Computed example of a mutant assay.
Amino acid sequence: MRHLLTVADVMTTDVVTVTEDTPFKAVAALLAEHHISAVPVRSGYGGVAGLVSETDLLRKEEFRRSGKHWFHRKARAKADALTAGALMTSPAVTVEGGCTLDEAARLMAASRITRLVVMDSDELTGIVTRSDLLRAFLAPDQEILARVRRDIVDRRLWDDPSAIQMSVLDGVVTLTGQVEKRSTVAFAEQLIAGVDGVVGVRSELSWAFDDTAPAADTAGPFY
């Protein structure tokens, strides 16, 4: 079974949180002190009620400077907010630690957000950002090669794994050698492209038999 990196592998576990009644200035001070851009807001029951980001805080400054009294009602409410509970975006978008990086990235894109709160049932376990998801691509080439060998080659997904030689440079996997069937080439490329950290796959593989070509019609005329 292949091992895909999950949110739990890259998330921040030492999460700074606030409560719903934390004052505006205290939230701003925490963000500055810890060099972070958002904090989960804990509810009175211990769960996560929402998330306060720098954007939420800046609503007040934007409103004060612009005097845009025609602000949308929700935006104006945030501009007038004095506590984290009034500032926060709720509910927070959450994932479980076992979520793959690809799944987390798709959820961020669909929700148009840059971070996810990681939960284990009702327990806050971490927070993951877009920059955390990029860590997989920062792995050294030798580590990526080891992942490919472990997840693909060692699983013996084709008849003769030794027939394919691999090298990795800047995250791009180059395949050389010869396989028995042409269909194996596309299969190998697809599998390797799905390994965490692989930026691309360059195939220089050849094949002994083209099993993708249409079979010749050897039947005689039909009367």
Rank of each mutant, 00 (worst) to 15 (best):
E20K: 08
D14C: 01
V173I: 13
A213S: 14
T114K: 15
K68R: 14
D211K: 08
A92V: 05
L169V: 09
W158N: 08
T176P: 00
G67H: 12
E143A: 13
V128G: 06
I127P: 04
A109G: 02
L31G: 13
R76Y: 08
V201T: 13
F209S: 11
V52E: 12
T12K: 10
D217I: 10
D159N: 07
A77S: 15
A75S: 10
F71V: 02
E96I: 00
L116G: 01
D21L: 08
Q190M: 08
E33Y: 07
H34S: 11
D120Q: 10
V18K: 06
V16K: 11
G197K: 06
T218D: 12
L205H: 11
H35G: 00
G220V: 10
L5Y: 10
S206F: 03
G197I: 02
V199W: 08
L107G: 03
A146P: 02
G67C: 04
L175H: 03
E204C: 09
A84V: 10
T83R: 13
R76A: 03
R65W: 03
L157P: 02
A86L: 04
D211C: 11
M88N: 13
A213V: 15
K25H: 10
G126Q: 08
I164M: 04
T184S: 03
L145E: 12
A77P: 05
R73W: 15
L82A: 11
A215E: 14
Y223M: 02
R155T: 14
V179A: 05
A92C: 03
A219G: 10
V117W: 05
L133K: 11
V15T: 12
V10E: 11
F71A: 02
F24A: 03
V15L: 11
F63T: 00
A84W: 06
P91Y: 09
H34G: 01
A92D: 06
S53E: 09
G47Y: 09
H72E: 14
T212Q: 15
L124H: 13
H35F: 00
K68I: 00
V198C: 01
R112K: 15
L145G: 03
E189G: 01
K60I: 00
E62P: 00
R147T: 09
A215D: 09
S183H: 12
D217L: 14
A136W: 01
E103R: 07
V148R: 03
Q142P: 01
L4K: 07
H69W: 12
M88W: 09
T17W: 09
I152V: 15
V118L: 06
Y45G: 13
L157T: 11
F209P: 00
R115T: 01
D154C: 07
R42E: 13
I192P: 04
D132H: 11
E61S: 01
D159K: 08
A49R: 15
V148M: 05
S167N: 12
L116W: 04
V39F: 05
W207G: 07
R73E: 15
H69F: 14
I144T: 09
F209K: 09
G50C: 03
D210V: 10
D14N: 11
Q165A: 02
A188E: 12
A110F: 04
S43P: 07
F63H: 06
H72M: 05
D120N: 10
A216R: 15
A139C: 02
L133C: 08
V172G: 02
M108P: 07
L116R: 04
V117C: 10
G44H: 09
